[in-house]
Design a protein around this nucleic acid. Sequence first.
RNA 1: GGGGAUGUAGCUCAAUUGGUUAGAGUGCCGGCCUGUCACGCCGGAGGUUGCGGGUUCAAGUCCCGUCAUCCUCGCCA
Length: 604
Amino acid sequence: MSTSQAADRGEWRRTHTCGELRGSDVGQAVRLNGWVDKRRDHGGIYFVDVRDRYGLCQVVIDEKQTGEVKLGPEDVVGVWGQVVARGEDNCNTNIETGEIEVLAERIEVLSRSKVPPFEVIDNLDTAIETRLRYRFVDLRRGPLQRNLAHRSAFIHALRCAFMDEGFLEIETPILNRATPEGARDYLVPSRVHPGEFYALPQSPQIFKQILMISGYDRYFQVARCFRDEDLRADRQPEFTQLDMEMSFVLEEDVFEIWERALVRTFRETMAVDLPESFPRMRWIEAMDRFGSDKPDTRFGMELVALNEWALAGEFSVFRDSVEGGGRVMGIVVKGGAEKISRGQMKPLEKKAREAGARGLAWWKPGLSGGGAGPLARWCEGAHGEELLKIMGALEGDLLLFCADSRQVTWRVLGELRLSLARQLDLIPSGRWDFLWVTHFPMFERDEAAGRWTSSHHPFTAPEDWDLGGDPAQLDSRAYDLVLNGWELGSGSVRIHRSDVQQKVFELLGIGPEEQRQKFGFFLDALAHGAPPHAGFAVGLDRLVALTVGLDNIRDVIPFPKTTSAADLMCQAPSSVPEAQLEEVHIQLRPEARSPQEPPSGADS
RNA sequence: GGGGAUGUAGCUCAAUUGGUUAGAGUGCCGGCCUGUCACGCCGGAGGUUGCGGGUUCAAGUCCCGUCAUCCUCGCCA
């Protein structure tokens, strides 16, 4: 065996991948390349599994043939040899190439590997920290390779779907102008404009609207977006959207395009048949039935309104809540009387309080009235019977209640519903419950700042173009796509009239001067022939994660960042030499200065 | 910014009330083995117990601080 002779001569072409040889290839002379996986040395006979992203192939080494062979884990090798049948007794049905093996004539090590920090195996329980630090090893593992291959196929199918619908794929700038509102921007200092900064796009929103104004009536893009906000399992500081926009359309047109694209993509990449059309639900209905604007509709346990019943009863907490403009709602946990013990009520109550409730009223109805729980004494006789009827509950169920403002009631019961469903394993698997949520409110009140904010974004069209009446009551033409309780994406019919856009800015407390300064170009564009238009963007990381059964988006992203937005492999972010800062006219504040040493990454 | 969890060998974990030389599995290295495929057998190396400080005769263990990772609330138009 010689090291890198082949490399010196450039003879590293392979005839086959490690995953493709079959019984029908027996007798062929082949050349394989790959990484050394498992080795099984029996003295006179030496088995080596050689791996690439297509699979695994057993190579048999007889050192009388090949000379001495010393292979370490993850060495990159080239193997010349002959495909031979394993014989019935020696077949390995666990791998695709299990009928054959390659009898090595020559082995060359193209590249030696250090012992890897963890094994390249499918079922790995190594800490994510180590995996991210050595992501180049982690990415060799089957699950990651399958996830990224699926992601590639999935995005390809979506891209084809939009191309076939006549959409143009158009790129928009990464270096943008910082805009007020929305998430915190990632900033990039300008060298040629001292003291000025670009912002990375939170989304291509304004550019895609301008593309509509410019007549590109069907646009899409696989767009990277950046938001400098704190991370979650389903949130990375940079993420990918399939972003699109269309002119001369209504909501339904956008929905139908996406339904066709997703049906096709699920069929082509997963052999899953989605329904031709997804249900639509108004925002207010989602909130009243599920306590969430991204309801998981795979299971029931819906919220039940109990105002009338509460007013007919004697329980003053409930009565006062309703009379004070609040509401009383409840949920039924089927069979919950037995499944949720008194001791298990404590964590539920804690959860309710965390969601804003002042307490948690509950009732386990008894056979002949009464039963258990703080509410039992208020549910005796006909009043209790009435409650069971309204809620569709029976003896043996657990009934949970919340009396508060409608926002708190939604939130408390919405969270209890989800938490109980997970705890009691009520969520069926294998379901793809897509849902369009429509008619979001136009504005939300920011009490702390004493102003209105857009609940979607400030370019969203109102239901009423005159924007009359109480801003709190205005519906917008924004919509979300929800899958299994995850918000996959959002969009809206946009404002195409500069007068309406200015009115919305004013309602949001952005005065004429600020409008001119920050959005002048956009208002100008709107005043130069803007077609009515609407659009949507889907978070591909989330969608792809869901389709491979993950609740964390990290493993569908090749190089994800940690919850503190660090890249553990490259150790980004890092400090930079003073000279580089000078070029971009930046002087660090004292508390931001790091020691002279280059950053170690572990202590910044 | 707040809350919670975790941090011991390359990896995954254990270590009694604070008490002897910090152990196991796995991986790695060496030896043996001609049909293994989670190969087997024998042997070996491998530790700043995240970091800093404190309490104590004695700290992996207790206290304070700090860093990192994960989950989460706020935040994410």
